[in-house]
Measured scan of single mutants.
Amino acid sequence: RLRTTILPEQLEILYRWYMQDSNPTRKMLDCISEEVGLKKRVVQVWFQNTRARERK
């Protein structure tokens, strides 16, 4: 499996959503993934990793 590259524009959108809610619902993940143009699972893992980084 290839690692997904997240573009700066996509990152900006993801962080904007993250500021609103760091733990989005499944429905929100659907909306975010549509807006960003990434698979739902990629967005979900990005949120998990970002929460983990914040805890450090």
Rank of each mutant, 00 (worst) to 15 (best):
Y18V: 00
W46P: 03
Q10S: 01
P24S: 00
W46M: 00
R51G: 04
V36Y: 00
T5I: 07
L7C: 14
N23L: 07
M19S: 12
M19V: 11
E35S: 04
W17V: 04
T25L: 00
R51D: 02
R55Y: 10
S33W: 07
N23A: 11
T50G: 03
R53T: 12
E35T: 04
F47S: 03
L14D: 01
W46N: 03
Q44F: 02
V36M: 07
T25P: 10
K39C: 11
R55T: 12
R1W: 05
W17L: 07
Q44P: 02
Q48Y: 14
E9I: 00
R26N: 15
L29M: 15
W17N: 12
L2A: 10
Y18E: 03
L14E: 06
T25Y: 04
S22I: 09
R55L: 10
N49C: 05
N23P: 00
G37V: 02
W46V: 05
R1G: 14
E54R: 04
M28V: 12
L29A: 01
I32L: 01
V42L: 06
P8T: 11
T50H: 13
K56M: 05
L29D: 00
Y18I: 00
A52Q: 11
Q10W: 04
T50V: 09
V45G: 11
Y15A: 12
E54C: 00
D21A: 05
S22V: 12
M28Q: 13
F47L: 02
R41C: 10
E34G: 06
Q20L: 12
L7D: 15
E34W: 04
M19E: 14
Q44E: 15
E34H: 07
K39D: 15
E12V: 04
R26P: 14
E35A: 04
R26Y: 11
L38G: 03
R51N: 10
V36K: 08
E34A: 10
T25S: 12
R41K: 11
T50Y: 03
R16I: 08
L29N: 00
W17M: 08
Q20M: 13
D30C: 06
T50W: 02
R55S: 14
M28P: 03
D30E: 13
L7Q: 13
S33L: 01
R41P: 14
A52N: 11
M19G: 13
W46S: 02
C31G: 12
Q44K: 10
R53W: 07
D30K: 12
C31I: 15
L38H: 10
A52Y: 07
M28C: 06
R41G: 13
P24L: 04
R53G: 10
F47E: 04
M28A: 13
V43I: 09
E9F: 04
N49L: 06
I32V: 05
Q10Y: 03
E54H: 06
V45K: 08
V42H: 07
R1E: 15
L2M: 15
T50K: 14
V43A: 00
V43F: 00
A52H: 09
I32G: 01
P8V: 06
E35Y: 00
L2I: 12
K56R: 12
R41S: 15
P24G: 03
S33C: 09
F47T: 04
R1M: 05
K56H: 13
E34L: 06
Q10N: 06
S33G: 05
L2F: 08
F47M: 03
V45A: 08
R53H: 11
S33K: 00
D21I: 10
V36Q: 00
L38M: 08
A52T: 09
I6H: 08
K39S: 15
D30F: 10
K27I: 06
P8F: 07
R16W: 08
K56Q: 08
P24I: 00
D30S: 12
Q20T: 08
R51I: 06
R26F: 09
R16G: 11
L29K: 03
R55A: 13
I6N: 00
K27F: 06
L7W: 02
Q10T: 01
T50F: 07
T50N: 07
K27H: 10
E54M: 05
V43C: 08
I13V: 12
R53E: 15
R16V: 07
R16Y: 04
L7N: 14
V45E: 14
P24A: 00
M19P: 02
L38F: 03
M28K: 14
E54W: 00
S33F: 02
T50E: 15
S33Y: 00
S22W: 04
L7A: 14
K40V: 14
E35K: 07
E35Q: 10
L14F: 00
